[in-house]
């Protein structure tokens, strides 16, 4: 981090301030660059992204009405679904067609819209699974605990540290299935961080999380950025988007229709139209920008 900034947040904001707010705009230091990514389901084109870049070290929000293709875009980029066409690079490396587990290993880790906490495993075992390069995960080494016990201790320390940060340290020995929906979201995020990813992609991290937890989750996401990790997240809650994102990308009907800093994007007419066209009770109205004609939500 250059000395003239107090935090990564300020740095990210300052760097992105000079970027022109238009769809597909190049960024000064992109970690992810996608070109012509298209995915169709039968006749429906779920994703058709011409060009998009994600700035390194920043928190980027991916927003858009339901069915805009955000989750599908996540699935394509992380290798969980196959694009009909398209190329994308991660850290300058071509990664289209790469197996999803390899992408996770090179630092692109995601969470899922429908939380995938492993219910019948304990919280700590969930966390341990997130750690990379484990000797004991090889079948022959697994038989000899002395080969992996010390590594396991280090992993546990790291896991406990993260669980403390996410307020889950009292749940260490509980089954993940006994956690609340919001706690599972937290666990999934903490687990993703076990591998020290460069880019975390969170699909609706706030869905189902109660307001009190939301505040601390916001704090966690900001903290992740301060550690130098890039965050790309999908979210519906506009207050949250406004609060934590350095940059916002708006998708509608599979395409990127707008980009820019949160304030700019939420005043954008195309964005307001996309939301209102899709669902009238969008909480975009909460930012005061988009009221329907009769003034009601």
């Amino acid at each position: 981090m250059p000395d003239n900034f107090d935090s990564r947040a300020e740095q990210a904001k300052a760097v992105l301030a000079s970027v022109d707010p238009r769809p597909g705009v190049p960024k000064p230091d992109p970690i992810l660059v996608a070109d012509h990514v298209r995915r169709s389901f039968g006749g429906l084109t779920a994703v058709n992204v011409e060009h998009v870049e994600i700035q390194r070290g920043a928190i980027t929000a991916l927003i858009g009405p339901n069915g805009a293709g955000k989750t599908t875009f996540f699935n394509l980029i992380t290798g969980f679904d196959d694009a009909n066409e398209g190329k994308w690079t991660f850290n300058g490396r071509q990664v289209a067609g790469t197996a999803p587990y390899r992408l996770a290993r090179i630092g692109m880790v995601r969470t899922f819209q429908l939380t995938k906490a492993l219910s019948r495993m304990t919280v700590i075992d969930n966390m341990r699974l997130g750690a990379k390069n484990q000797t004991g995960e090889r079948i022959f080494a697994a038989i000899f605990p002395f080969l992996w016990k010390s590594q396991e201790k280090q992993i546990d320390q790291r896991a406990i540290g993260l669980l403390e940060r996410f307020n889950l340290h009292q749940k260490v020995a509980d089954f993940a299935g006994s956690l609340s929906g919001g706690q599972r979201k937290l666990l999934e995020m903490a687990r993703a961080l076990m591998s020290d990813p460069e880019l975390v992609m969170l699909d609706e991290p706030m869905a189902g999380v109660n307001p009190a937890l939301k505040q601390s989750l916001l704090g966690h996401i900001k903290a992740i950025r301060e550690e130098g990790t890039t965050v790309l997240f999908v979210e519906h809650d506009m207050d949250m988007v406004h609060d934590i994102s350095d940059w916002v990308i708006v998708m509608a009907q599979g395409q990127v229709i707008a980009e820019g800093p949160p304030d700019t994007v939420m005043k954008n007419q195309a964005v307001i139209d996309a939301y209102l066209g899709a669902h009238h009770d969008s909480n975009l109205t909460e930012s005061g920008e988009a009221l329907t004609e009769d003034g009601a939500r």
């Binding site: 587990y101 880790v109 990379k132 995960e137």
Partner: peptide, 8 residues
């Protein structure tokens, strides 16, 4: 999928 997403 959860396990894949953790790089296994």
């Amino acid at each position: 999928d959860a396990v894949v997403s953790l790089g296994k």
